[in-house]
């Protein structure tokens, strides 16, 4: 079942008078339960594609359907709600709100969804246990290691059971052992809870973990390999 359908999408950036085609007529489909990496050198358009799928950037041409809904037809507020309900994000770094504790960071998204506090607490407790940080619940991000911070970010991304989790270079600031642990965690989420993951990365390790690797080059799909 297709969760994301990208049809002939182009995205052009203007810098002064020069045009830069970040994406050039890209089409692809991502199905439920995939664990997919968008690969390519920097400037190849992988982050742009990820942002477009996540509804935080808009395409100049073409359509993107998320869960069957055309993103370009949505207003700002509706897009925000869509992101809240259907998409989880994990960024490279500075993912967390520094003034909130680990648990509060995860809980924040549930608060945005207006979920009653008793249910919130249960869900947060469960997910923190899943990412193995139940004992760090009351610590602030600055008191956690980089790897722990990213695990909390993953917990926040999956806690509301989104249709898809988008991760932009989640391992870039981590050493290889920590990075591996993080990928193990996400893989486990993928197999245990059927969470769909899409990465934008140029980390070899992430590509090894991925079951499908889409390689972008100069804004076009150069390769699409399913393992």
């Amino acid at each position: 079942m297709a969760i994301v359908t990208v049809n002939n999408v182009s995205r052009i950036y203007h810098q002064g008078k020069t045009e830069f085609k970040a994406l050039d007529d890209v089409s692809l489909t991502i199905n439920k339960g995939e664990f997919t990496a968008l690969a390519g050198p920097s400037g190849s358009g992988k982050t742009t594609l990820l942002n477009l799928i996540g509804g935080i950037d808009t395409a100049d041409k073409g359509t993107i359907l998320l869960d069957g809904q055309d993103l370009s037809s949505l207003k700002k507020g509706e897009l925000a709600d869509l992101r809240l309900q259907d998409i989880g994000f994990v960024f490279q770094s500075f993912n967390l709100i520094p003034v909130l504790t680990a648990a509060e960071n995860v809980e924040y998204i549930l608060r945005l969804q207006k979920i009653p506090s008793s249910i919130r607490r249960q869900k947060v407790k469960a997910i923190l246990a899943d990412v193995g940080l139940a004992d760090k619940a009351d610590q602030r991000p600055s008191e956690l290691s980089g790897g722990q911070q990213q695990r909390i970010a993953v917990a926040r991304a999956v806690v509301a059971s989104p249709a898809i989790v988008l991760a932009d270079e989640p391992t870039a600031n981590l050493d290889s052992v920590t990075g591996q642990k993080l990928l193990d965690l996400m893989q486990q989420m993928n197999t245990d809870k059927q969470v769909t993951f899409v990465f934008a990365t140029h980390d070899k390790m992430v590509m090894d973990y991925a079951r499908r690797v889409i390689t972008l080059k100069d804004g076009r799909i150069a390769d699409d390999i399913r393992k």
């Binding site: 709600d81 960024f91 924040y108 998204i109």
Partner: peptide, 11 residues
């Protein structure tokens, strides 16, 4: 980050 995870601008 907050906007990405779905917080509305008004919030």
């Amino acid at each position: 980050v907050l906007l990405s995870i779905g917080a509305r601008p008004a919030r």
